[in-house]
Computed example of a mutant assay.
Amino acid sequence: MKRNEIQTIESTNRKQKPAEDQIEFGKQYTDHMFMMDYTEGQGWHSPRIVPYAPLELDPAAKAFHYGQTVFEGLKAYRKDDQIFLFRPERNFKRLNESNERICIPKIDEDLALEALKQLVTLDQDWIPKAEGTSLYIRPFVIATEPSLGLAPSKTYQFLIIMSPVGSYYKEGINPVKILVEEEYIRAAPGGTGEAKTGGNYASSLIGQEEAEKIGYTQVLWLDGKEKKYVEEVGSMNVFFKIDGEVVTPALNGSILHGITRDSILHLLKHWEIPVVERKISIDEIYEAHKNGKLEEAFGTGTAAVISPIGEFFWKNEQLIVNNGEIGSLTKKLYDTLTGIQYGTEPDPFGWRIQL
């Protein structure tokens, strides 16, 4: 076998697929997964598709102790007998950007994309058919060297697992309620905020837990230095429509380079709708709401796609957005983007890949 030829070992014990009305986000997994190993001095090697199974790792593996791990999230979509991926090359590019920040050797992006295509094709029967459903894809890298010395690992595994999913939020496309977090911070300049690494999400859990206790779906994080400027929601980038102009926080090193975020920016510019990336403070959001200029707000991300925001809770005050209803621009963006992803709308940007 050639060094980068992908070996496939098919499962002889196929699992029962969940009923499409009983799919839970990230709870059931397909029959196969992709794996590839890294060894210092040898590089990445042994790419293979194998039956989905637990991993065997040494208790001293560095991923457990020093958080040297990164991940991605994307989806496969079905329209009748057609299967589509949406901008997957951007995910592997971003994975390598995260790898660089966490001192993990870069993967071959072309090989990763080919492995993904083969894996999705093999497990295509797991892609649900019901409206709004898809196959969630989770590529990730973990440090596997069994050593407690604080240094980058000398061995790694790169894996791709997949899970049939419905809506990320129980509200679906209905507006969610967001708590503005003022006590904790998620990331700070010079940190790992723009890398998709597990520690960022671990640090956000306490804020999300506190939000859920008082009936809010997610947390809006402010900057780590002044706790003044809006950054992102726990699992989404965030946009505001203020007095006819769409505003989203500029990428500053502590905000994730969202692929859905980038797609929304492209759509807005394509439609010639005023849009700007800049610093925006929570005080500005409050004043816009107070003056009746905060017209819409929404979050963007692979899991939720676009999630309208119907309320912010800040300083014990409820800021209701658009009467708690989805805005017309948010709805148009959602319909267009999901239409491109599912192959029901034209794709003027060449984002869609058909398998």
Rank of each mutant, 00 (worst) to 15 (best):
L122D: 01
T121E: 13
I49K: 07
P54E: 05
C103R: 12
R78N: 10
V50F: 06
D81V: 01
C103H: 12
A151K: 15
A115Q: 03
L113S: 10
L119W: 02
L85Q: 07
I142N: 03
A151D: 14
A143K: 06
Y66H: 10
T144Q: 10
E131M: 11
K129H: 13
G132D: 09
G149H: 13
N99V: 00
P146C: 08
V120Y: 02
Q68H: 06
D81S: 14
H65T: 07
A143F: 06
P128V: 09
A151S: 15
F86H: 03
I107Y: 00
L150H: 10
A151C: 12
T144P: 09
N91T: 09
D110S: 13
Y52F: 13
P51R: 00
Q124M: 10
G67A: 08
K129N: 14
F71H: 08
A60L: 14
P105H: 04
E56K: 09
N91I: 05
D80C: 05
D125N: 14
K79Y: 13
E89A: 12
I142D: 03
T121K: 13
V70K: 02
R101N: 09
G73L: 06
L119K: 03
R101L: 12
D110F: 11
S98P: 01
K93F: 15
E114H: 12
K93D: 15
P54G: 03
K93H: 14
C103K: 13
S134Q: 06
F64S: 02
V70E: 03
K79N: 15
H65V: 06
K79M: 14
